[in-house]
Design a protein around this nucleic acid. Sequence first.
DNA 1: CCTGTCCTGACAGCGGGCTGACGCCATGCA
DNA 2: TGCATGGCGTCAGCCCGCTGTCAGGACAGG
Lengths: 219, 219
Amino acid sequence: MRILLIEDDMVLGAAVRDQVAADGHSVDWMQRLDAAGDAMAGAGFDLVLLDLMLPDGRGIVFLRRLRARGDVTPVIILTALDQISDRIEGLNAGADDYLVKPFDLAELSARIGSVARRYAGNPNPIVTHGPLEIDLAARSIHRDGRPVTLTAREWALFEAFLSRPGQLLSRAQLEDKLYAFGAEVESNTIEVHVSRLRKKLGTGVIVTERGLGYRLGRG
Amino acid sequence: MRILLIEDDMVLGAAVRDQVAADGHSVDWMQRLDAAGDAMAGAGFDLVLLDLMLPDGRGIVFLRRLRARGDVTPVIILTALDQISDRIEGLNAGADDYLVKPFDLAELSARIGSVARRYAGNPNPIVTHGPLEIDLAARSIHRDGRPVTLTAREWALFEAFLSRPGQLLSRAQLEDKLYAFGAEVESNTIEVHVSRLRKKLGTGVIVTERGLGYRLGRG
DNA sequence: CCTGTCCTGACAGCGGGCTGACGCCATGCA
DNA sequence: TGCATGGCGTCAGCCCGCTGTCAGGACAGG
């Protein structure tokens, strides 16, 4: 897998590079955003590891611009910012995952593997689930042949179910997926999003386990 | 989830136990390290809440010994020691998280959920018990290949039996596992839930020991 | 047979879950 | 800058199924 590492801290960058390389991936390490932008425009990477605090600009802007260009390359954010608002901002900007420094290198490997598996894409892997056809890479869904459009949150939620088919997911687990680790949600946000998802995808897709959580229904 | 609480303070221990039980986990509470060691050697717990200051030894030694044995059960340390050096020592000994007394019970819940989720990763181990296939992480059961759905209380009860295969469990023990202390049940609730479980899982799963309690039958 | 224990169908209360509605905020457009 | 739009979190009220309770019957032991 081709990985682009954008990190200005030399010590941490080297450690990450070595770890990722040891996992068998090829790594391009850049210390500046402008160089990274050029690299992204050229060869296609399979994954981007992005530091948010860089000398020549905020990584979040970089990420947002990337997504605005239609680039769907998976991005994992590495940062010392541990404010909830920052995490939300990161995910809203289109990040796929989030690691707060200091993080364990083994955890980094695990996250990379997870993201890689999710996107392990021969051209367009299409998952069919009952009347639904899901193209994970393109983030598109068709229901009975008709296209369905999901919002960012809805997609994140649905993806959580797809990644663990048949497994029961508690509200807390889902909140972790949507808000990147322990953000406090004071209301029934998950319920509302589930409700909205059901309205778009059909009622049988997500099944409620009263008192426990939700799980993906049989297609 | 099966949780082992090691805490010698009766007031705090009771509070923690009630909170954890209210979150839907089954709790074993021990006041001494030697007893806890025996318990760990037997049934597998999903998580350990460990006080560092105990009458019969230092919790840190216990933890280190645990890891030396190759036991990877997640451990959260509860302690009044708030020196940085203590934290580092605890984490180096193999703890997964650290809570300094006095801590908020809600925070405890959040940490437990977080640690549990971190370890809830695939591949899910499947336990077979006669005609039953049990996926603890996914909270799913199949009987003769057909899925069986349990309610929250039914799960908690069944889990209590699974965690102690073959061991006799009195009604009082089961009530302790299912309900927070103080919320005493005055009727034959346990009997009713056993009955409902048997109807879903089959009659041979839970065996009655007249006058004593119940135990898990041979598969 | 008697007695104590256990099983299970029935039922009501309530608390968790669903969803329509609303307001805030960010974004896009003129 | 003002207006329109759409996403998202929050709230309230309704609904439904879980769950504790009870009662009557079954069963084991003596």
